[in-house]
Computed example of a mutant assay.
Amino acid sequence: MSVRGRAGRAVAGALGIAVVGAAAEVARRRRVISRRGAGEDVAFGSLRSDPITVVADDGVPLHVEIDELEGDRAAAEEAARAARKRRPPRAEAVPDPSALTVVFAHGYALNLDCWHFQRAAYRGLVRTVLYDQRSHGRSGRSGDGHATIDQLAHDLKQVLDTTCPDGPVVLVGHSMGGMTIIALAEHYPELFGSRVAGVALISTTAGGLDPHRILVPVLPSTVGGQLAQRLVATLARGHRTVDGLRKAGKSVASVVTDLFAFGDEVPASYVEFVDAMLSATPFEVVAEFFPQFATLDKYATVHALGAVPTTIICGTRDRITSVGHSRKLHSVIPGSTLLECEGAGHLVVLERHDQVNAALDQLLAAAADRVGPR
């Protein structure tokens, strides 16, 4: 074959790859665009799948739900087949985000339903795993001494081993869920770059948190921290009474939820939804986990996340894990990207769900590219 002939075939092959890649990317982006706003017309807490139970290493049963793929690749495959006719067979495979499993870890005093808009947007397009952290939602109660961030990391490892032992995984964590992922990187760094192909840390930190300011924002940090710890411990002894008072003072609780969960005006249904999750978490559980946040310090090992694409997201008006925490994470995780959602609060996954989902879509694409063609 002449040099010109070989060059022509090479060009044709390259064009074939570009055509099928572009076709698949267009199909993927069309599916993403079509899902914008998904969940707005779906009742909060109504997205369900048949649950399974994952037993933690200390025997606590964890409630897990999996949204499997349901004909989600039809559009992309149709585009790929059409393009395949115009390119050599070797140009067949392109990175496909649907090859990934996305595992969502929720935050303190919430449950898996907090991912409402993310679940609605990705349902059927990407395999997703959602679970309730121990002592939260429908999961079992933790034993004494096991309500720790490190134990949550071991729980997540058990969820991964049970629900997605094979294939690449993207981990998405909000608040305490982000801390769970960071602790996972500390205990199991070998997972990042092998099984874990991407990470999203949302409204979270690796340390330096002042959780007492939620309770006593007007006190100096040293005094406030000591008082908060004693106050929570004292209230925990009468946790049933506290739970009753929280329900009786629902109107006040809603105002506090609005203040600390959101940075901007959101529909009343958002506030009621978050308040219901918070109210459903027994104060005894709140008290058990509370001391963990003041002592959290995992910046020494967070660099392990630099082995994979890592997206950091935070609202600029987050009163719980301020945007400074996300900026610090961004500075110490090599190659990470940072999205600051202007005016949003701690529940940015609800308040700015379209922005969050767009950032997650870019993360899935980067993770799929890293994993390679299917």
Rank of each mutant, 00 (worst) to 15 (best):
G59M: 04
L62N: 06
L62K: 09
H63M: 01
H63D: 05
V64M: 09
V64Y: 11
E65M: 10
D67N: 14
E68Y: 07
L69M: 11
L69S: 06
E70K: 14
G71Y: 05
A74F: 01
A74Y: 01
A75Q: 09
A76H: 00
A76R: 15
E77F: 10
E78K: 13
E78W: 14
A80K: 13
R81P: 00
R81F: 10
R81S: 09
A83F: 03
K85G: 13
K85P: 00
R87H: 07
R87N: 03
R87Y: 04
P88H: 15
P88V: 11
P88L: 15
P89G: 03
R90D: 05
R90F: 10
A91Q: 11
A93N: 07
V94K: 04
V94Y: 07
P95Q: 10
P95K: 13
D96T: 14
P97Y: 09
P97M: 09
P97W: 11
P97N: 11
S98C: 08
A99W: 06
T101A: 07
T101E: 00
T101R: 08
V102W: 02
V103T: 13
G107Y: 10
Y108W: 15
A109K: 07
A109C: 15
L110H: 12
L110P: 02
L110D: 01
N111S: 10
N111L: 02
L112M: 09
L112F: 10
L112A: 12
L112N: 08
C114M: 15
C114H: 01
W115P: 03
W115H: 06
Q118M: 07
Q118W: 07
R119W: 10
A120D: 01
A120C: 09
Y122T: 12
Y122S: 02
R123C: 04
G124P: 08
G124D: 11
L125M: 12
V126A: 04
T128C: 12
T128M: 15
V129R: 00
L130C: 12
L130A: 15
L130F: 14
L130M: 08
Y131S: 07
Q133P: 01
Q133S: 14
R134W: 04
R134Y: 06
H136A: 06
R138Q: 15
S139I: 05
S139F: 06
G140T: 00
R141H: 14
G143T: 13
G145Q: 08
H146M: 12
A147L: 09
T148R: 12
T148H: 02
I149K: 04
I149R: 03
I149P: 03
I149V: 15
I149W: 01
D150W: 12
Q151K: 13
Q151R: 15
H154L: 10
L156M: 12
K157W: 14
Q158I: 05
Q158D: 14
V159H: 08
L160C: 05
T162F: 02
T163E: 02
T163R: 01
P165I: 05
D166W: 11
G167I: 10
G167Q: 02
P168K: 02
V169P: 00
L171Y: 10
L171M: 12
V172L: 08
G173E: 03
H174M: 06
H174I: 10
S175W: 00
S175Q: 04
G177E: 05
G177Q: 10
G178Y: 09
G178W: 12
M179N: 08
T180V: 11
T180E: 07
I181A: 04
I181C: 01
I182T: 13
A183I: 07
A183M: 02
A183Y: 00
L184D: 01
L184M: 13
H187R: 15
